[in-house]
Nucleic acid binder design. Sequence first.
DNA 1: CGCGAATATTGACAGCCGTCGATGCGTGCG
DNA 2: CGCACGCATCGACGGCTGTCAATATTCGCG
Lengths: 117, 117
Amino acid sequence: MYRGRVRTTLPVIACCEPLTRAPLGVDQAVTLAARLKALADPARLRLISLLAASPTGDVCVCELTGPLGLSQPTVSHHLKVLHEAGLVTREKRSTWAYYSVVPEAFDALAQVLAPPR
Amino acid sequence: MYRGRVRTTLPVIACCEPLTRAPLGVDQAVTLAARLKALADPARLRLISLLAASPTGDVCVCELTGPLGLSQPTVSHHLKVLHEAGLVTREKRSTWAYYSVVPEAFDALAQVLAPPR
DNA sequence: CGCGAATATTGACAGCCGTCGATGCGTGCG
DNA sequence: CGCACGCATCGACGGCTGTCAATATTCGCG
């Protein structure tokens, strides 16, 4: 069974060929599903878009709770999930935590989802 | 709140720009998350790859339960989820049901996930 | 040192999800 | 007609998940 969270941060660029090549092994499917699951949430998608839309490319948590309309612990939770999936990076500057997207991860995902032909 | 399944089949090609443009509205985020959530499961990812790997492009349910190691009801359930998300089509021929992938849907997803720059 | 601010962690709770066995439904065949 | 087969649906169950309030942690500053 594939149940059970993937705890450690996923390898920078994870898996596999275009998804529509060979019949995806169990392990690859689990890994890819974990990363997609991290994305498959409205709040996290909006977080990603907010990070990407920033001129500087990184945003501190305090600027994210407002636009999302979620509590600070919840935002921290979502950012942690995204971080563990290797989709964002965290940089702490004194008391503030600045998050930014990892373009390579999204590039890899886009290629995996590339349609046949 | 965004809770609650998206019941009807999603529009053939759903949303939005590259995800890394404008700060994604709530509705768009919910729609996109629904489609990603349909993909974010190991069994369903393997189903997709099995469908895509078929020479004819379509596979009947009876040929899918074996490779996946899941019961027939479970496989039917996953195919239903994929169908409601607009990721696969179903065609019934007498007693058999043949499923195939919808390339346009994956193309759209790949473009939405395209990284910044 | 001690306070305040920004985050992270914990605990709790309600709702969703993947899985299976049992059952229903439609179709072709003898 | 009646049976067998392929598939979908139902009901149930255990585990996971998103959310918040409360609390812990870390850091700068006076």
